[in-house]
């Protein structure tokens, strides 16, 4: 681009050094990350570990980089891709799984810290090939569109029902707000959870 080379020339003639960062031009100080002293990395053998995870009732042994989250361990190491990554920062809830029956964001849990816990993922919800009542209710109430947030929604809903809240519309909405659905299926999600809650009071308790 000819206009560009002219700009380089102008900048270089106007300034002894034309390698400026945008921030410096704006009057901000040296901001390069390189200036930040970086702690020395540990030796490679200390960066990985052999761990054992109990996933859907099965003990799984795997060697992982210690930085591996439970989410990446499930998806990349164990092939359990039903648990989804939507932000990797705990801001969407798509990765919700149960740890000892409690819902957590798998993207915010280091795999190495989940040893000894009983992890349940969407793949472990159906029993003997039969859908969990929440799964069936999600289909019946059309509580999803693209389906991407759905495993997280369902795990969160299963937890909601086991946490002992009164399944009112308001309570469901508040306690399901950690699971974003960009398709906007929220009203149907509320109906599905109410339906599953109704079934669990009228029939057998919801299994995990």
């Amino acid at each position: 681009m000819p206009s560009w080379s002219r700009r380089v020339f102008l900048l270089s003639s106007a300034s002894a050094t034309f390698l400026l960062t945008a921030a410096k031009r704006l009057g901000f100080g040296q901001r390069s990350a390189a200036a930040q002293p970086s702690p020395a990395p540990p030796p490679p053998e200390a960066q990985t570990a052999e761990i054992a995870l109990t996933i859907n009732g099965q003990l799984q042994r795997l060697r992982i980089d210690l930085r591996t989250t439970l989410l990446d361990a499930l998806r990349n190491h164990l092939g359990l891709t039903g648990t989804k990554k939507g932000c990797d920062l705990g801001q969407c809830g798509a990765c919700t799984v149960l740890a000892d029956g409690r819902r957590i964001n798998a993207c915010l849990a280091l795999a190495v810290m989940q040893q000894g816990k009983d992890i349940t993922t969407i793949e472990g919800l159906a029993k003997d090939g039969e859908q969990h009542p929440v799964q069936a209710a999600f289909i019946e109430q059309d509580a999803f569109q693209c389906g991407y947030c759905t495993p997280g929604q369902i795990m969160s809903a299963v937890a909601f029902l086991s946490e002992g809240h009164e399944p009112t519309d308001a309570a469901i909405r508040e306690w399901m707000s950690g699971n974003l659905c960009r398709c906007g299926a929220y009203p149907n999600i509320v109906e599905a959870i109410k339906q599953a809650a109704h079934q669990s009071t009228n029939h057998a308790p919801l299994h995990l």
């Binding site: 540990p42 990797d88 920062l89 915010l108």
Partner: peptide
């Protein structure tokens, strides 16, 4: 819990070589 720390480590906002 790690809910604050891990996102910061992931985005390079904080750095640690020991947890």
């Amino acid at each position: 819990g790690g809910t604050d720390l891990l996102p910061l480590l992931k985005e390079g906002v904080r750095r640690a070589n020991r947890l």
